[in-house]
């Protein structure tokens, strides 16, 4: 065996008992290296989309089509149930649903980020961040496909949505919305922020789920509830319709205590020209910081364990 000097051996052995695999530097390197391999995760993300619709005639347009069908169906039904005008309620539901789909994807597909890439992780050395970015990129592409539905809907109901003071539902407690204006540009940073959040969700939940395989079904079973708890098919107007007026109403807490509401609202509000609030940005910003903090801790401690766990 080629000899190594014993001094070097001892020094290396002592200096790297635990610290070699669990270090901030390595976690950070994984993340930066992962981002740098843009071509790799970009390619893999596209591949996933193409793969899913291989041999189908209209291909990825199915994403767009199924979103359109769902949005129109739900929009027609719920606008009648809540006594709302279709012209404002259908865009509301459509956008809410598109944003929700992206977030839900980050959560459910995020939990499977590493599990689904078992083969690659065990056979080709690459930063783990690549797989998280692959997931987020795939969902971003799906979001882009769904955005087509948004553009069609907005074009159809352009006059309803640009009228200043329009309401999404009818009734005296309905909040007057300013209508679509230049403020629609807030949608761009809002989506970027959502995608950044998708990153930590995929890393953190991906790592936890790889170790504890009960987490994906737990999250799966909660998604239905989360969907109905979040103002997507209903509006916050309804919360104030009954009982005492005003922000102080306890019903308002149903939405405000739900972080998903804030996530949806930062992107939905500019897209349909409804009232924007800095509160949502602050809440989402705080979650972003805390989330990435947790993701970094998870990366530092368990990055090297993932290949053992998958």
């Amino acid at each position: 065996m080629p000899a190594t000097s014993t001094a070097e051996q001892e020094q290396a052995a002592t200096s790297s008992q635990k610290s070699s695999t669990r270090s901030w530097a390595k976690a950070w390197e994984d993340i930066t290296q992962g981002f740098r391999q843009r071509e790799l995760w970009g390619h893999l993300g596209w591949q996933d989309i193409k793969q899913r619709y291989r041999r189908s005639i209209i291909g990825p347009l199915w994403i767009t089509l199924s979103m359109a069908i769902t949005a129109v169906g739900l929009g027609l039904l719920y606008s009648q149930l809540f006594g709302a005008t279709i012209g404002t309620f259908l865009p509301y539901i459509t956008v809410g649903f598109i944003v929700w789909n992206f977030m839900l994807g980050c959560l459910t597909e995020g939990t499977e980020t590493f599990i689904r890439n078992e083969g690659l992780i065990k056979h080709l050395p690459a930063p783990l961040t690549v797989y998280a970015l692959r997931t987020v990129w795939r969902l971003t592409l799906m979001f882009a496909h769904n955005l087509l539905v948004y553009f069609v809907v907005v074009t159809i109901f352009w006059s309803d949505l640009t009228t200043a003071g329009y309401t999404i539902t009818e009734g005296e407690h309905a909040i007057a919305q300013p209508g679509i204006s230049w403020a629609i540009l807030y949608a761009i940073p809002a989506f970027v922020l959502l995608a950044i959040n998708g990153g930590w969700v995929a890393i953190l939940f991906g790592i936890i789920s790889t170790r504890y395989r009960d987490i994906p079904p737990v999250i799966q079973s909660l998604t239905q509830l989360m969907f109905f708890m979040t103002p997507i098919v209903w509006t916050t107007d309804i919360l104030y319709r009954f009982g005492p007026d005003g922000e102080g109403s306890w019903r308002g807490l149903v939405a405000n205590l739900n972080p998903l509401y804030h996530y949806i609202e930062i992107l939905r509000a500019p897209l349909i020209g409804s009232v924007q609030s800095w509160v949502h940005w602050v809440v989402v910003g705080a979650f972003t910081v805390v989330g990435w903090g947790l993701a970094l801790v998870a990366m530092r401690n368990y990055r090297a364990r993932i290949s053992y766990w998958v």
Partner: peptide
């Protein structure tokens, strides 16, 4: 480098 050593380095 796919498996990092559980002990040693």
């Amino acid at each position: 480098g796919i498996y990092e050593p559980t002990r040693g380095s």
